[in-house]
Simulated scan of single mutants.
Amino acid sequence: MQQTRLDTARIRMARRVIDPMFLDTPLYRCEALEPGLGCAVSIKLETANPVRSFKARGTELVASLLAGNGERAVVCASAGNLGQALAWSGRGRGLDVSVVASRFATAAKLDRIRALGAGLELVDGDHELARERAAAVARSEGIRLVEDSLDIETCEGAATIGLELVDSARQFDAVLIALGGGALATGVGHVLKSLAPEVEVICVQPLGAPALTLSWRARRVVTTDSADTIADGVAGRFPIPAVLDDLLLVADDAVLVREESIITGMRMLFDHAGLVVEPSAALGIAAILEDRDRFADRHVVTVVCGGNVDGDACRRWIGAAPL
């Protein structure tokens, strides 16, 4: 494999830095899902932790590095999950964490950021405007800006999920990974292509927020004027060139799925696996639903990447309140 920005040795070392509560997350075959999907399905569950997403694997590395260098403040833009994770990791290391988010972000995520003690600034726009504002705050205050997917720690933290998949010694044919900024896909993809190249790495993005998928297909950065999806955690419009370069090396395919398939995937995970997930975490199930023939008789792993969902929205989408 050609070289990505990631390094497998550093990824192994990352496990010594990340709080163990975020590591070795459950990986299990969910037979109850299989009749409706037509293939063997295993779940890699990244929601059973204090921030209910995989993001802390990366923020643990970032916060450890900053604290080790004597820095005391950090800022990021977030749709919600990165902000929670950075607030949690920073709080334990004495960092003053500021988060910039869209005021239209999921209320439950914003409330949790505040509860974890981070400063929260809201902007009247989408996540891309929040990124611009966070960069301005970093410049004016002379503090570290954490950029999800661009900062290698966020990718290599996520990549520890790939190590756990490989180290499980279980046989599977493909891994379905939610594609937003790209940290999860490039991290897990790097490990799989390095250590288990026979496994197909398939990235999944909503049809209403297709920028990085379109970029992967075109092999150049493609931006979009808007993002319209319930999967707010992956609703970026401006792919990062360095991330695209990595993705082109590790992804075997990138597919787009409809909103109704995402909602059906959420409902299936609730009904058959007892899981309350945010829309981004159901992208893998949505991909199977839309192309059953492709996955028939194969063993597929889907990374359930986050469980931060608004209660009212959850009831509208799947007819159930969060557990």
Results as ranks from 00 to 15, higher is better:
residue 151 D to H: 15
residue 189 G to K: 12
residue 130 A to Y: 00
residue 105 A to S: 15
residue 118 A to F: 02
residue 282 A to E: 08
residue 311 G to Y: 00
residue 119 G to M: 06
residue 184 L to F: 09
residue 277 V to P: 03
residue 29 R to L: 08
residue 83 G to I: 00
residue 319 G to Q: 10
residue 212 L to D: 04
residue 179 L to T: 06
residue 61 L to A: 07
residue 100 V to W: 00
residue 133 R to M: 06
residue 296 A to V: 06
residue 296 A to Q: 11
residue 106 T to Y: 11
residue 310 D to T: 13
residue 228 D to Y: 10
residue 254 A to H: 05
residue 219 R to Y: 04
residue 115 A to K: 14
residue 254 A to D: 05
residue 76 C to G: 04
residue 305 C to N: 15
residue 298 R to V: 09
residue 284 G to H: 03
residue 79 A to I: 05
residue 171 Q to H: 08
residue 35 P to K: 08
residue 215 S to W: 10
residue 312 D to W: 14
residue 64 S to N: 11
residue 35 P to V: 09
residue 94 G to R: 07
residue 282 A to F: 06
residue 2 Q to N: 14
residue 294 R to W: 11
residue 283 L to S: 13
residue 188 V to Y: 06
residue 23 L to T: 08
residue 132 E to T: 15
residue 266 M to N: 05
residue 10 R to D: 15
residue 190 H to I: 01
residue 163 L to K: 03
residue 124 D to E: 15
residue 41 V to N: 05
residue 272 H to L: 04
residue 122 L to E: 09
residue 305 C to M: 14
residue 299 H to S: 10
residue 138 A to R: 02
residue 194 S to F: 02
residue 56 A to H: 04
residue 269 L to C: 00
residue 239 P to Q: 13
residue 148 D to L: 11
residue 217 R to W: 07
residue 4 T to N: 14
residue 185 A to W: 07
residue 270 F to M: 00
residue 70 G to A: 02
residue 182 G to N: 11
residue 164 E to H: 08
residue 57 R to E: 02
residue 290 E to T: 11
residue 197 P to E: 05
residue 244 L to D: 09
residue 247 L to T: 04
residue 6 L to C: 13
residue 248 L to I: 03
residue 145 L to V: 02
